[in-house]
Design a protein around this nucleic acid. Structure first.
Length: 187
DNA sequence: CGTAAGATGAAG
DNA sequence: TTCATCTTACGG
């Protein structure tokens, strides 16, 4: 079965353990996805809740389409579009456990603490040098890609909670992370 | 058109 | 707890 054929919340869970890799001009950086959130149709926190606009258009692409947006005027976050074409749903990547190119991440982030490199959606975007030009790239076909886990994360090691930093839909249990992992976005 | 709020992070 | 910072999207 193909990961991207699943429904959005299933993709959000199964993405845990996958490695996100960016082959940039400066070098390769990579990290294990340890925290995700789902954004669905009918969900008021979803950028595609109301209608398709220039900003959220990548969410309506085929599953695997990349959606990068700017928030608070200074930060960027990265999502992977899910479901079929023309359905505005996606999974937000919230945290990585750094594995490759840690020196490069430290340089880009301006900090040496490994735990502080990718423990937040805007942090990992900076560490991995993800940018808006990646909109409409595909997560299996381009220089920003995912590779499967060597060991699948068991269901019992996946924690489900409400999402972070939103006011609408704050009660929906659409956030997932790997149990006991020290690299998630909260202490 | 004007403007409030936003899927954050760092510093105080 | 505050603030930096600016685009998007909604209301008038």
């Amino acid at each position: 079965m193909n990961l991207l054929d699943l429904d959005t919340l299933s993709v959000a869970k199964q993405l845990l353990g996958y490695t996100l890799v960016h082959e940039s001009d400066e070098g390769i950086t990579a990290g294990i996805i340890v925290e995700t959130e789902g954004y669905l149709q009918g969900d008021p926190a979803c950028h595609a809740y109301r209608r398709k606009t220039e900003r959220n258009a990548p969410m309506f692409g085929e599953a695997g389409n990349i959606y990068v947006y700017q928030i608070y005027g200074m930060h960027f976050c990265v999502n992977i579009s899910t479901n079929q074409k023309d359905v505005g749903e996606a999974v937000l990547i919230r945290a990585l456990q750094p594995t490759i190119g840690i020196d490069l991440m430290q340089k880009r982030r301006g900090t040496t603490s490994i735990k502080n490199l990718c423990s937040g959606p805007a942090k990992l975007v900076q560490a991995m040098q993800i940018h808006k030009g990646m909109n409409d790239w595909h997560i299996l076909k381009d220089d920003l890609k995912i590779t499967p886990p060597s060991v699948i994360i068991p269901e019992s090691d996946i924690i489900t909670t409400t999402r972070i930093g939103i006011t609408q839909g704050a009660d929906l249990p659409y956030r997932f992370y790997i149990k006991n992992n020290p690299f998630i976005s909260k202490k």
